[in-house]
């Protein structure tokens, strides 16, 4: 990943839900790029808008929600201008999605091979069944599902296998971007670890781009190249994984990283206890949305929303407290290293 090619640009994206208590912006003016071939992690706590963001990238927000603002530029084209048919083709062929619970995503009365053949034929109606099946078999073999398993129904497979079928469905049309929304969350650790290995492999083999949406920060450290941290509908920090974990700039990222349990015995013995809980988005705090929980909040944090700005090449942060001199110090420290 030396040269970074932008695959998708998200520009000033907002998603609004109509609720009884008035409109709620679950995603509020977010801007970022997804690079070709990278594994980008999107982390945050429940209700921060990470799943909404994943759906919005495929324009799959259902009423009472809608994309109220912004552009989604995929390979140079703004998909917000696509009509229904074009959008339908875009989903699946360009971008596909894997969800937390594969059992609800797979059809219980359809065999694995039928799922794959259907996916191929919907997008490429001229493909004959035999050809489609052959393609499906080759792909699934590579994902570690034997040929005999292809005629199984979803309930006959284990959780890990079902998730691999979902990945297969995403790959069979050669999608460029796969969005995995909590795809490993319901799996046991060993199965999860295997899926992580598999996701890395398919990135290397097929060159796909992965957007991994998760609440599991340790998983992001294990898997991703870059990470975006979300809080209350905003991305508060974005950058290369090592830099963020070594030197988090936003107070929320700092607190979050310190409150993640670590199995290594020599690591710190106590978890950091962040005060408060994430805010309710019907009435988000004024100014910086993290200020009521921020240990370092100043007057300006309560009054004005900070900008999401690039402080060093590739590192973005949305915080008033990150001053340029701190960033300079940080750079100096790196040079010394």
């Amino acid at each position: 990943m030396n040269e970074k090619q932008v695959l998708m640009q998200v520009k000033d994206l907002s998603v609004t839900y109509e609720t009884r208590l008035g409109p709620v912006s679950a995603v509020d003016g977010i801007t970022f790029d997804i690079y070709r071939g990278e594994i980008l992690g999107l982390v945050g706590e429940s209700g921060c808008g990470k799943s909404t963001m994943g759906k919005a990238l495929m324009r799959m927000i259902q009423p009472p929600g809608w994309i109220s603002k912004g552009q989604l530029i995929f390979e140079g084209e703004d998909i917000m201008t696509y009509d229904r048919n074009k959008m339908r083709d875009f989903r699946g062929r360009k971008v596909s999605m894997i969800f937390q619970d594969p059992m609800t995503s797979l059809n219980p009365v359809q065999r694995v091979d039928q799922h794959l053949i259907e996916a191929i034929q919907v997008h490429e109606p001229k493909t004959i069944i035999e050809k489609a099946l052959e393609r499906a078999n080759i792909l699934m073999e590579r994902l570690g599902i034997q040929k005999e398993r292809m005629s199984n129904y979803p309930h006959q497979l284990s959780g890990g296998m079902r998730q691999r079928v979902m990945i297969g469905l995403g790959l069979v049309l050669n999608a460029n971007l796969i969005i995995a929304d909590e795809a490993t969350t319901s799996l046991d650790v060993i199965v999860e670890a295997k899926l992580v290995d598999q996701l890395k492999e398919i990135r290397d083999e097929f060159g796909v781009t992965l957007l991994v949406i998760t609440h599991n920060i340790a998983l992001v450290a294990e898997l991703c190249d870059r990470v975006a941290v979300m809080y209350a509908g905003h991305i508060v920090e974005l950058g290369p994984i090592e830099e963020i974990f070594d030197n988090p700039l936003h107070p929320y990222t700092k607190g979050l990283l310190l409150s993640v349990p670590n199995i290594k015995l020599d690591e710190r013995e106590e978890l950091f206890k962040m005060a408060g809980e994430p805010p309710n988005l019907t009435h988000p705090p004024f100014g910086c949305r993290f200020h009521p929980r921020c240990p370092k909040a100043t007057a300006i944090c309560e009054e004005k929303e900070p900008e999401f700005r690039e402080v060093t090449p590739g590192r973005f942060v949305k915080c008033w407290l990150v001053k340029d001199y701190q960033v300079k110090e940080m750079k100096k420290a790196e040079v010394i290293k």
Binding site: D197, A218, L219, E222, L257, V260, K264
Partner: peptide
């Protein structure tokens, strides 16, 4: 099981196979 648990440190990624 212990090796499978992800560690919140990108410098210490797992290398063992499962």
């Amino acid at each position: 099981l212990m090796a499978a648990v992800p560690v919140p440190d990108p410098h210490k990624r797992r290398t063992q196979s499962m």
